[in-house]
Design a protein around this nucleic acid. Structure first.
Lengths: 195, 195
DNA sequence: TGACCGACTGGCACTCAGTGTCAACGGGGC
DNA sequence: GCCCCGTTGACACTGAGTGCCAGTCGGTCA
């Protein structure tokens, strides 16, 4: 059932790309909130109803990748030896995935739009909470936590803080127009939290 | 212009309390998502339109206080001497406000509802982001950061992590049915992040 | 007491997101 | 050629949230 490249899945992937591209142009052109689903559907040449068969919400066009990236981070984290302490392992896993995203130019536009659109910001954090659920089990093993101890907050706290640092770094990065280096900002963020 | 206790503001406050109470009963009874604005308005004896004059969104009924609490935390933080290091000052400020909230019984019900209702969870995080904007300036002063250095992530990272710890502690607290002590959970969360 | 002002209210109509349903279409296997 | 199955578009519907307007009611001043 793995990678089937029948006509169905191929054209479906093409449709995803097409819709995303068209919608992004509209978002960056006239703003996220001011763009309606009808406009996107019309511009993409599909019906309103079909749009919702590709994306559950308008926000998913922008943030849909975050769900996938979460699984990539988890996989990358699983690949790091359990002897590596949590913070270092998380950093390594995050960088492995962060390297896959597109060019800084469009990244910056998306990030800026995200940080000034409340509903987008909220959804992005919601997605990051899903990351948390994916990453916590591995960090618990890394800490040698008792799997039956429901009161153990350590792993939850560390993962939540790491993501908070990534978020803070991203916010500063976007605020300054992408001038600083994101990795360096994250490194400094973690450093100041832990010192 | 300060605290005017004319008939207008008194009855307005009473209306707030009335609507909140009625709505909470409905939420806890039949779930947040399954409760419509029309039901709340009807139960509170007001029109649909008037409801939106009191609360901007359905989520604000549950989370409205968070905005106010944010300002309280800021004020409490401002009251802590600048010589106290960030983490300690934040903890002190958070506890001062956390002590004001109601009994654990209803708090737990609300927290549980929040953690299993996506839209509520998202909004609550959005509110916590507002806390961040309120608290960061003070923490920057505490760190002796250069006010003109836009690249300085330290304060943002610390505040974001502290709130993340509070959130993680709250999640664990709600997950276990309010068995553990929230303050103790937070203390342990911060400890594991910084060790 | 009566006229007036300003805030609150309810009702109506509207936009927009999101969902359920159903008939029509179109490719792949027999 | 025929059937199965996934996709599509059209229609109708709910529910959140907003703009507008006319009516109401408390407070104020003459």
């Amino acid at each position: 059932m793995g990678i089937e490249d029948g006509l169905w899945s191929r054209s479906r992937r093409a449709a995803y790309a097409e819709i995303t591209q068209v919608a992004m142009r509209l978002f960056l052109d006239q703003g996220f909130a001011a763009t309606t689903i009808d406009q996107i559907a019309a511009a993409a040449g599909i019906s309103r109803r079909s749009f919702f068969r590709y994306f559950g919400t308008k926000e998913d066009i922008v943030l849909g990748d975050l769900a996938v990236q979460g699984e990539l981070v988890r996989d990358a984290l699983e690949a790091v030896p359990l002897t590596v302490p949590p913070w270092d392992a998380l950093q390594e896993a995050l960088w492995k995935v962060e390297g896959l995203v597109g060019d800084d130019e469009t990244m910056l536009k998306i990030a800026t739009m995200m940080y000034e659109t409340p509903s987008l910001r909220a959804r992005s954090i919601e997605k990051h909470l899903q990351w948390q659920r994916l990453l916590v089990p591995n960090v618990r093993r890394r800490l040698g936590s008792d799997p039956t101890d429901a009161d153990d907050v350590a792993a939850d706290a560390i993962v939540a803080s790491a993501i908070a640092c990534l978020d803070a770094a991203g916010a500063v990065w976007a605020r300054n127009g992408g001038a600083a280096d994101l990795k360096e900002l994250y490194r400094r963020a973690v450093e100041s939290v832990r010192s």
